[in-house]
Design a binder for these strands. Structure first.
Lengths: 327, 327
DNA sequence: GACGTTTAGGCAAACGTTTGCCAAAACTGT
DNA sequence: ACAGTTTTGGCAAACGTTTGCCTAAACGTC
């Protein structure tokens, strides 16, 4: 119904100038008498005024748009993060632009350039990959937060878990359960997150008396963690001394491993128990045999938006590590 | 680097007026001599000009933004559609805004209003729910396409599959396989898509000699199809005359049913085979026992964008039904 | 050479918002 | 009553783009 209602419409209705309306809309109420403020508020209500983002963006040089660049939206964990981020952004009055970079640096750069031109008010990088444009972007003054993977080309606010600690927690559990032959499956060209989980796992095992060489490692290639798990676990199950406990650094890797185990006729969790790091709710339905370190993805969104606003307020970008737990 | 390069920058560089640059940028080359066109193109290249979306939006009254409103992004099928839509939109020069309505009419309306104010160039409704704002929006002249669920409050371009035919295809298969006691599990408060799949299934069975009353029906409540499948199949498996073939109208419902079957100690596919409609790639990994009618979600994006542009060109909104197949 | 037509390109207004600056009017204290 | 201050609010410019209209110059025709 309110086809084209602008500040001018409200101003005419209330019998004041556009300046006054603008100021009141933006909360600058000290510049008008209480009576005028009320009159303008009523007029806004009456004509159904909503600020035009284009006019605002043009004048302010910044929009209420926040871009989320995710490496792979087919990965349910990232989709969940995107989803919770969307809710938190809306809550805070932003609008989410979502881009899928497919883990490709050129595409990420293309998006970064496009988002810069769009004058987005913030940038959320879910599993960013190193690229020339990324470094350049950091200098452009747009608030940026890195999720799951740290900024590969510099500093920056990070939202995620303590990946080393998560890996270590799994090591603790394996040792407590009396496992003799632990293994870990992870992507060969992995992110900082994957590497840290593996390192935390191996280091803790070493501290508990399991030599690093004794820990079997299965590496897989490709963007799909399902495939990584399938390929990476192949060699593991062909050995004579098969592992009796495997850490998969993501749920999807565990799914891939499960398929391999099925084909190899190996039972889970007996004789080989599997633990993954992610713990998305789907596990309970399709993989009841899978134990997990649960990452609280649903609260990532709020944390990300809080981080964005902290940067905007000029606070130093601190790390935001979230709690994880077995679940 | 190009902090604030506008038409004026290019104009100065090329020694022409902004009007001329603007026209050339927009392909109106007949209004300038070939020499000038080249000079301007060089200048654009030299200063790295990119049109400012805010200025453009203000003037044109429309942005290059397209909003995708999805009912539930936690549903992998919708996430996949969103993902493929994103790629197709980018290809066509649009930028995707993604909103999760959580299947709630008020939230959908809130988003619709916000997107109208944003002056989006198009609206993609994935599983739209009936709401007051939806009807209103159709009259606003914004190109709209409905995906998976038809517009519940009026006409509109639809992208999806022939749901009745998909249901019927499953009926054919069950009868061909000699199943005696078919069943179907679906959401109680379902969409047009769910209802059509069920209707196609039941009608075809009737045509093939299985009376409608003989078809067991399991209905479940809630937003999560996982829960729908779990709840909806409970009664089915408690009966003395258990079904020997079940159609689940979505993959997630099948996952839910599988959990129930597991708990009830009933094997799949023997003695009870299960077919779902969706056929997302994850099935092969986590549910190898599940046969599916595969819906080509990855091509939805291109079809959606094509539909949007057809509307923009003023073509009559025709239905866009995509092929499905057992996979 | 006079006249009409095409070509090439500039001027300026408009889109809606924000904000620095200015000007009345209303107060204050003496 | 008067000077000084605060309150209240308007004017106008600016952000970058598009487009209707205008004007020269170049071209063509007789």
């Amino acid at each position: 119904m309110p086809a084209d209602v602008s500040l001018a419409t409200v101003a005419a209705q209330a019998g004041v100038s556009v300046s006054t309306v603008s100021r009141i809309v933006n909360g600058e109420t000290r510049r008008a008498s209480p009576a005028t403020v009320q009159r303008v508020r009523d007029a806004i209500e009456a004509v159904g005024y909503r600020p035009n983002p284009a006019g605002r963006a043009l004048r302010r040089g910044e929009t209420q748009l926040v871009a989320v660049l995710a490496a792979n939206l087919d990965n349910p964990a990232m989709a969940t993060i995107a989803s919770s981020t969307e809710a938190a952004l809306r809550e805070a009055g932003y609008v989410m632009i979502l881009c899928d970079t497919h883990d490709r640096p050129e595409l990420q750069d293309e998006y970064l350039a496009a988002m810069r031109v769009q004058r987005v008010g913030g940038l959320v990088m879910i599993a960013a990959v190193a690229s020339p444009g990324l470094a350049e972007m950091a200098g452009a003054g747009v608030p940026m937060v890195f999720v799951t993977r740290r900024n590969p080309v510099g500093p920056g606010l990070f939202v995620g878990i303590d990946d080393r600690a998560a890996g270590a927690a799994v090591a603790d559990r394996f040792v407590a359960a009396g496992c003799r032959r632990p293994a870990v499956v992870f992507p060969r060209r992995g992110s900082s997150a994957s590497r840290d989980r593996v390192a935390g796992f191996v280091d803790r095992l070493a501290a508990l008396g399991v030599a690093s060489e004794a820990v079997l490692r299965g590496e897989g290639d490709g963007l799909s963690h399902l495939q990584v798990g399938y390929d990476g676990s192949a060699a593991l199950f062909e050995r004579a001394d098969r592992p009796d406990a495997v850490l998969c650094v993501s749920d999807q890797i565990a799914y891939g491993l499960a398929r391999r185990a099925r084909e190899a006729g190996i039972g889970i969790p007996d004789p080989c128990c599997v633990v993954s790091i992610d713990g998305t709710p789907l596990n309970q339905w399709v993989a009841p045999w899978l134990a997990s370190v649960r990452i609280p993805y649903p609260v990532y969104g709020a944390e990300i938006v809080a981080g964005l606003e902290a940067i905007r307020r000029g606070e130093a970008p601190a790390e935001r590590l979230l709690p994880f737990a077995f679940g």
